[in-house]
């Protein structure tokens, strides 16, 4: 990374994350096809919903015939972290037009957010439209293309579970959680570990009586409230 906020520097710096999008996008396409969803719908979901974890969840809830409203609510909740990331990013683009803000905001991802936060350390705390927009579009096109290819490959790989591909998502959460733990300096490391431990206990207890599609929401809201309380009580 350097201090250049140009299209070419963005292209160079996005490359490592593009490999990630291709891997998970392929897995998503294959899992989607194996779940009986058409390549067209699989690709549309990547273009319209555009959220890795949420797309796997939508597929699994479609398979279990969940009501539409609870699928949409689950997708919203899984993606609600976008609110936080967009909120953190927005101040750096205050001088850009409203339209440019909407274009940038509409394609923010975990990875483009992380790259942006990293870039700030090299540019004297500055970001611009050209750089961030390039990062976003590389991610968006790689994700959609990989999803389509995965869906088409799915015709030949009928049982992706056999190869462990369904674990790609869980592994991604493990990786993102770890990267979050070591890079998020806004919350003390020990407090983060306590919240993660709380989530484990809350999941174990909650899974006894909370339906699977509501469990993530309930546990996350409880853990956020718990985190705030512990932070004020002990940190």
């Amino acid at each position: 990374m350097n201090n250049e906020l140009t299209v070419s520097s963005a292209a160079r710096e996005t490359l490592p994350t593009v490999f990630g999008y291709i891997g998970i996008g392929l897995a998503y396409g294959i899992v989607g096809k194996a779940s009986g969803i058409s390549p067209l719908m699989i690709t549309l979901m990547s273009l319209i919903t555009y959220g890795g974890a949420s797309q796997f969840i939508i597929v699994s809830m479609l398979v279990t015939h969940s009501p539409m409203i609870s699928i949409i609510l689950s997708a919203f909740l899984v993606n609600s972290r976008m609110i936080l990331m967009s909120t953190t990013l927005a101040p750096y683009f205050k001088k850009e037009s409203l339209l440019k803000n909407i274009i940038l905001g509409g394609l923010v991802t975990d990875e483009s957010f992380a790259l942006g936060m990293n870039k700030l350390n090299f540019t004297d705390r500055k970001l611009n439209f050209a750089w961030f927009n390039t990062v976003n579009w590389f991610a968006y096109t790689a994700w959609a293309a990989a999803s389509l290819v995965g869906a088409l490959l799915g015709n030949f790989i009928s049982d992706p579970e056999k190869f462990g591909l369904d674990f790609a998502l869980v592994a991604m959460f493990i990786g993102l959680l770890y990267l979050q733990l070591i890079s998020d300096k806004s919350i003390k490391f020990k407090l983060q570990l306590i919240v993660v431990a709380f989530v484990l206990v809350a999941t174990y207890i909650g899974i006894i009586f909370i339906p699977a599609n509501l469990l993530t929401l309930v546990v996350t809201l409880l853990a956020c409230a718990f985190g705030v309380v512990i932070k004020h009580g002990f940190f």
Partner: peptide
């Protein structure tokens, strides 16, 4: 402050849910 806990909470929840098999 509340939202600042969302990333670690949601990511660990989505991991831990996969370690258990639900029997309501």
């Amino acid at each position: 402050e509340f939202l600042s806990f969302v990333p670690i909470a949601i990511m660990s929840a989505l991991w831990f849910e996969n370690l258990f098999i639900q029997h309501l």
